[in-house]
Simulated scan of single mutants.
Amino acid sequence: MIWISDGRPVYRRAVRQVYRDAQPTGKRGRPPLVLTPGVGLTQAVKRRHQGRMVRVEVRQVLGEAVDCPYPVHEERLNGMLRDRLNALTRKTHAFAKTTGTWDALVILCLFEHNWLRPHRALREAGEGLPEGRRYRPRTPAMAIGLTDHIWTWEEFLTFKHYQYQKE
Rank of each mutant, 00 (worst) to 15 (best):
R138F: 01
V18F: 12
V15D: 01
R28T: 12
T98F: 09
F95S: 09
Y70W: 11
M142F: 05
Q43N: 09
V15R: 01
Y135C: 04
H161Y: 09
R123G: 04
A87E: 10
G63I: 01
L62M: 05
R90P: 01
T152M: 02
R84L: 06
V18D: 09
Q43Y: 05
T147F: 02
Y162A: 07
T92D: 04
T158F: 07
P71T: 05
A22Y: 09
E64F: 02
K27R: 15
E154W: 00
G29Y: 08
W115K: 03
R84S: 02
V34I: 15
W151K: 05
L81K: 04
E167V: 14
R48D: 12
R8I: 11
R20Y: 06
V39F: 02
F156G: 00
L88H: 02
E155P: 02
T25L: 08
W115M: 12
T152L: 04
P24C: 06
A143H: 05
A141Q: 02
R55C: 05
T101P: 00
L110V: 11
Y135L: 12
R47F: 07
R117T: 06
F111K: 12
T158A: 08
A14V: 12
R123Y: 05
R28H: 11
L88E: 01
H49N: 08
R117A: 02
T42I: 08
Q165F: 10
K160D: 07
E75V: 08
G26I: 01
P140R: 05
I144Y: 01
Q23Y: 04
H119K: 07
Q60I: 12
W151G: 04
D103S: 11
D148E: 15
L41Q: 03
F159L: 10
K166L: 14
Q60Y: 07
L129V: 10
I107Y: 13
V45L: 06
W102L: 15
H93M: 10
E167L: 14
A104K: 13
T36E: 13
P137V: 05
Q165D: 04
R12M: 03
E57A: 12
L105E: 11
W153E: 07
N86F: 06
R84I: 00
R59V: 07
G126A: 10
P24A: 13
G7T: 08
V56D: 07
N78S: 13
D6E: 14
Q43W: 04
V58P: 04
P24K: 07
E124K: 14
L88M: 13
A143E: 00
R133W: 11
R20Q: 11
R84G: 01
A141M: 03
L105I: 06
G100F: 06
Q23P: 01
G63E: 03
P9E: 00
A121I: 05
L33F: 08
L62W: 01
I4E: 04
K27T: 08
Y164I: 08
M80E: 11
G128T: 01
G51R: 00
H149R: 15
A44T: 13
R8H: 15
R133A: 15
R76S: 13
N114Q: 08
A125K: 14
W102E: 06
R16E: 14
T152K: 03
L157K: 09
H161I: 10
R76K: 09
V56E: 15
E112A: 15
W115Y: 15
P69C: 08
T36Q: 13
V72T: 15
E155I: 02
G126N: 00
R133I: 08
P31R: 10
V34C: 10
